[in-house]
Design a protein around this nucleic acid. Structure first.
Lengths: 345, 345
DNA sequence: TTGTAAGCGTTATCAT
DNA sequence: ATGATAACGCTTACAA
């Protein structure tokens, strides 16, 4: 009986044996180490191909104490803004030699916690997070900070101060722009449908919007303000209530485009003329806002630019891991937004 | 000088030392191994928490020869169908203890190849792939098959026979339904805008569509058929050509909804009445198809159901890794589709 | 129920 | 330029 070892797969040791050289040399050759002769490098690579060798990143990661994986926790990949953000971020990280592990919290705080723990154990080299609508306590990310693992929050960021990097859109200005635009378009009775105030972006949009109305001495009726998850269903509920009284709004700021789209559909069903009887501003500049009739005025957030900032921050932090320059942290980085005017205003 | 080891982080060995027991016991306790006393299990877990221990999945993966990571290569996450598919698949795999590593080929064959190699080296436990528009040679996935790593193609699958699992929508039937529906709606001059025939789904949709017209003795004019990437820009180009002659189509089958949406916009600009002068059927039942005016008739593909099938196949294959039952492979699994009628027909 | 010891595959360090 | 060796942290026969 031949003592045939079941040898599942060839390792650098096997290559070394086959070539009569040491595993260290093989490793160096495969990693294009400088001080290895061209000749052996070539021999090694050829033998590797011949033997069907594949690099084992688990072993390599264990030895190097780095996984080359970057974790991403995002509320939902179905949101337009995040899709564009992710695509751009992934391209850049890929180019820098990192893999992105994309996870969805589905706007559940408990899922977010689980994912944070999983990615923590998985030894991701860095973590990028956009929080759920309801995350107020961010203690589940503390481990990353303690271990000096780069942690970047973007878009939906913590509402309290943190040692992590923070990169966000200028939601305050977005709210301000929306309010100003509706007022300049002649609206006097402006309604507002916002997401929950536990979430940074809605806090900020609300602040900006409220400031705008105050500045122009436009009254803000509490009965015309709604805070809830910005789904089409919720939007319809709120719209029904908004339009059931005698005094009805002539302007609406919807804190996302799903809500703005629902408002357009609602107005059509009720025979409310847009923009004559009701003007609408949405948020995010979802592609749907442009194709619907009438096309919706919205706030553009430039997801690609934000992805650039995040990628830059990440790569910088990963390179200088030994000098955790805390001076670059602290102040949130704020990305510009713009109002895109269309047919609803 | 105190010989203070720089001990970066605590391992099970440290816990063992602190407790005066062996690392093996600690490992077993943390893994809830059956034959460990309740008492020590509790002691270990407490000490682990106290010492801020975190599991090292790199080490664990190396030892176990499994990463618990499943790779996914998808053309673009911006496509509605894939977003829903991914979300559903990820939820199920997460529940089964796997992490999903989502990558985008961006419809580039070379990127697809790179990603396949990266995920191969990353030692993913399985790979799920929807091919680019242009992937005809699938040799870059051969390594997975050779190593017995479960490989599942879904939606855009290889056009040639493969040993991998294949799960696809019933695109032939989708094309058939679209053709039949337009004909029953009274169309006589039907145009067709398809994706490139290098891609399985467009091959099949075309076959079904062609068969439908043949069966009903409706002529198929070659000048009314276009094959190209289904972007809005390309759609406009083709539509312009379609409507520049004397004889113009009264029906259009668009092989995706982006194209159908472009057709609606084109018709509006040209003052072509829909559905009276032109009837349109799209594909995928993109949510945009429902909100545009007029709402577009489309083919629903049930991405969640396909994700269920893929998850089931994967988990099954991963459990029986030692019995690579080849009988379950071979025949593609075909998922049903339905026509959703709206205002464009 | 717990301990001992070897090994997963790679790479950094030190030596030659 | 190359080799020998140890170690990364965990798991699992095998022993006790």
């Amino acid at each position: 009986m031949t003592p045939k070892k079941p040898k599942s797969e060839n390792s650098i040791v096997d290559i070394a044996k086959a070539l009569g050289i040491s595993p260290a040399t093989v490793s160096r050759a495969l990693n294009n180490n400088l001080r290895i002769s061209e000749a052996t490098r070539a021999r090694v690579k050829e033998m590797a191909k011949e033997m069907g060798y594949r690099h084992n990143s688990m072993a390599s990661s264990l030895r190097n104490r780095r996984s080359n994986i970057i974790g991403l926790i995002v509320p939902r990949i179905s949101m337009y803004f995040h899709v564009f953000f992710i695509t751009s971020l992934q391209r850049q990280l890929q180019a820098a030699g990192y893999n992105l592990m994309i996870c969805q919290s589905n706007d559940s705080v408990s899922v977010e916690k689980e994912l944070a723990n999983t990615l923590y154990s998985a030894r991701v080299d860095a973590l990028v997070v956009s929080l759920t609508l309801y995350t107020e306590n961010i203690a589940h990310f503390d481990g990353f900070l303690r271990q000096g693992i780069p942690l970047v929050f973007y878009d939906r960021v913590p509402t309290r101060r943190t040692e992590a990097y923070v990169i966000k859109g200028d939601d305050y200005r977005g709210g301000l722009l929306a309010g100003n635009h509706l007022i300049q378009a002649g609206c006097q009775r402006i309604a507002y449908i916002s997401g929950p105030l536990s979430c940074s972006i809605y806090q900020e949009r609300t602040r900006g919007f409220v400031d705008s109305l105050a500045k122009h001495h436009i009254p803000l009726r509490q009965e015309w303000i709604y805070y809830h998850e910005l789904t089409a269903e919720n939007a319809w509920d709120s719209l029904r209530k908004l339009f059931e009284g005698d005094i009805i709004p002539d302007g609406l700021f919807a804190a996302n485009d799903t809500t703005a789209i629902a408002a357009v559909a609602f107005a059509r069903e009720r025979g409310i003329a847009i923009p004559d009887e009701l003007k609408i501003v949405g948020y995010s500049n979802d592609p749907r806002a442009a194709i619907i009739t009438p096309a919706i005025t919205s706030i553009e957030q430039y997801p690609n630019d934000m992805a650039d900032k995040v990628a830059e921050t990440l790569i910088n932090a990963l390179q200088h891991r030994h000098t955790p320059s805390p001076n670059t942290i602290g102040e949130p980085l704020i990305c510009p937004v713009d109002l895109v005017r269309r047919m609803t205003t």
